[in-house]
Design a protein around this nucleic acid. Structure first.
Length: 601
DNA sequence: ACCGGTACTTAGAACTCGATTT
DNA sequence: AAATCGAGTTCTAAGTACCGGT
């Protein structure tokens, strides 16, 4: 039902927004009037959705494989236990992966080293395994130095070399980077097959350091139209399979060997296919906005439910809604130990009847996606607090907090509350509504453009904090802050100087001639310019410091309805380029075309 | 109800590159 | 001309969600 509503909107507005030029061109040869065109297009779109069809025609060149291994020159030695050992090609390649990572933190971790060494031994010849039994006796230093010198050389390439390289890359992009889908030429996202290397898991990943094998054409599935030009595998090779499944959007896929997970070649976010999906996501979130009051009433009422299952669901949903927690699917234990809402364990929260003058405080402390720490002290309703006490009764720290709940049952319940509703919609919804509210609150219509941009970044930041989007403090942060401060001081001195100059000039102008008045005007302008520059620097300082550990990109790209930003720009005369860079503008083209200054999420 | 498989979105780190400073 | 820096881009891991078989 809901799908149908969205689908109708897509059909109605989609004609205008996506301006499907090539499709229209093809069609217009046979169809003359705009009305006929719309009818045709609508039928075509309809046939698409009902049965999960994602495309009618798909043609591409297949993925691009990683370059073949280049053996080391004989001058670069590997040593074992002090003695030079000439490794077989495969062993050498894998050793090289490790050598490249030598000054990375990973190589200090025993899990990483053990996994690496285990997998390395598997590719060694029998001879090599007999000799090389202890990683700590391996000396990769020369290999490391060689790779360093290589990248040094790459950096020092001449202009001509760089230009040639760039041209070659563009050639590759042109050949492999695009596909034809339903009459459109669209950019592909990741057309390169991942090169072999050592697996870099995030956090305490039990598989870190394992060998990620080289992917061969024989591993790769190709997906395209039956009547398209089927991509050719590299000479002497075969594809694993060529299939023609138009219910999925991927062009190629393979299974990565470390975690046995499928990898896909898919379209770029700028594509129509991805754009429509993105749009639909925000429409669902807007739909939630309409029922959020009722849903909140429901889960609050459920805090008193007889069934513990329902109470747990209601408390979890409250966390998801209020704190923008992720759903928290179960994980296997061959992955890093991280949790989301449904998978929280007793050890991840602490209850305080009173903390820092606040009542009924829940302290969350756990590792979430990508092993990013979530720490938050949250005063909650007494009823929530009491429920949590019950959920935790007779449990160990390692027991599930919500033992009667998982993401499937939660999402089943959400579907009943609203069609299309799942746990992640709350994150999208709360992120977008927060941006809209914050923009409203922080934007002074009379402020300058840089001040407005600061306001925007602050609104963006509020969302990033809500979603716990963190990043490592940038390497040179404190240094660059100092430099900026110094710059500001210099500018201040300049302003003072200019002020004095201007004062003198005013005096001179009072009794002076036209010439002195002109000079005075000039001084005034100079002063104003300096003042503006100073203000800009000061804003930059605030912005950068507040952003130290907060990543704005993720929310901007994935959670904030771009129409909110677009309408804000239009309303306040801020050029969209100040908010979205080129890639972002491509991705959000649909929103830039769609939203006027009055758009409300 | 559970489980493994599949497809897709979301995520921070690493890398690249061009502008700016030294 | 070299070094530095940060914005932009690429990379790929790690999530969510759902399906179909048992």
């Amino acid at each position: 039902m809901f799908d149908h509503v969205i689908f109708n909107m897509i059909v109605l507005i989609g004609v205008n927004i996506f301006k499907c030029k090539s499709f229209l061109k093809v069609a217009s040869e046979n169809i003359r009037t705009v009305r006929q065109l719309r009818v045709f297009r609508k039928k075509w779109e309809e046939s698409k959705k009902e049965d999960g069809t994602k495309w009618h025609f798909l043609e591409h060149k297949g993925p691009l494989f990683a370059p073949a291994y280049e053996p080391l020159p004989d001058t670069v030695k590997f040593r074992y236990d002090g003695k030079v050992v000439k490794l077989s090609q495969d062993s050498e390649e894998v050793a090289g992966f490790y050598a490249r990572m030598l000054d990375h933190d990973y190589t200090t971790k025993s899990t990483f080293n053990n996994n690496f060494f285990g997998d390395w031994r598997k590719v060694m010849t029998h001879e090599e395994t007999k000799l090389i039994k202890d990683l700590s006796k391996c000396d990769f230093k020369e290999m490391q130095a060689y790779f360093q010198s290589l990248s040094e050389k790459n950096k020092n390439r001449t202009k001509e070399e760089k230009a040639a390289l760039k041209a070659k890359n563009e050639e590759i992009q042109k050949e492999y980077g695009f596909c034809i889908i339903d009459g459109h030429k669209e950019k592909i996202g990741n057309f390169r097959i991942e090169p072999p290397g050592l697996f870099r898991g995030r956090g305490e990943h039990p598989k870190m350091g394992m060998l990620k094998r080289r992917v061969m054409p024989e591993d790769v599935l190709i997906n395209c139209s039956k009547d398209s030009k089927i991509p050719k595998p590299p000479a002497g090779h075969k594809w694993k399979e060529v299939r023609h499944d138009n219910t999925v959007t991927w062009l190629a896929s393979w299974t990565e060997n470390v975690q046995s997970q499928a990898k896909y070649v898919m379209l770029n976010p700028s594509s129509k296919l991805k754009g429509e999906k993105d749009w639909q996501k925000y429409e669902t979130a807007r739909h939630l906005h309409k029922s959020i009051d009722k849903i909140r009433d429901t889960y609050r009422a459920d805090w008193k439910a007889k069934e513990m299952r329902v109470r747990q669901r209601a408390v979890a949903l409250y966390f998801i809604d209020r704190l923008a927690l992720r759903a928290g699917n179960e994980k296997d234990d061959d992955q890093a130990d991280t949790v989301g809402c449904c998978s929280l364990r007793v050890e991840h929260i602490e209850l305080h009847k009173e903390k820092d003058g606040k009542e009924y405080v829940v302290v969350f402390d756990f590792l979430g996606k990508d092993s990013i720490r979530y720490y938050n002290e949250v005063p909650v309703e007494k009823r929530v607090f009491k429920n949590l006490e019950i959920f935790m009764e007779h449990k160990k720290g390692s027991d599930d907090l919500f033992d009667r709940l998982n993401t499937q049952t939660l999402n089943e319940h959400l579907k009943d509350l609203m069609p299309g509703l799942t746990a992640k919609v709350f994150r999208t919804y709360n992120a977008s509504i927060t941006l809209q509210k914050q923009l409203e609150e922080l934007t002074d219509p009379d402020a300058s453009i840089p001040e407005k941009i600061l306001a925007y970044n602050r609104a963006n930041r509020a969302v990033a904090i809500l979603c716990n989007h963190q990043r490592a403090v940038p390497k040179g942060h404190s240094k660059s802050m100092e430099a900026l401060k110094e710059k500001i001081q210099t500018k201040r001195d300049q302003v003072d100087e200019a002020e004095a100059d201007y004062r003198d000039a005013t005096k001179a102008a009072k009794r002076g001639s036209v010439k002195e008045k002109l000079a005075c005007d000039k001084k005034k302008k100079a002063l104003e310019r300096l003042k503006e520059q100073l203000k800009k620097l000061e804003l930059q300082e605030t912005d950068r410091d507040e952003n130290k550990t907060i990543a704005l990109g993720t929310s901007k790209l994935n959670y904030l309805d771009p129409r909110i930003s677009v309408s804000w720009c239009k309303k306040h005369g801020v050029p969209i380029e100040k908010i979205y860079n080129k890639t972002q503008r491509d991705k959000f083209r649909w929103a830039i075309d769609m939203a006027g200054p009055d758009y409300v999420f």
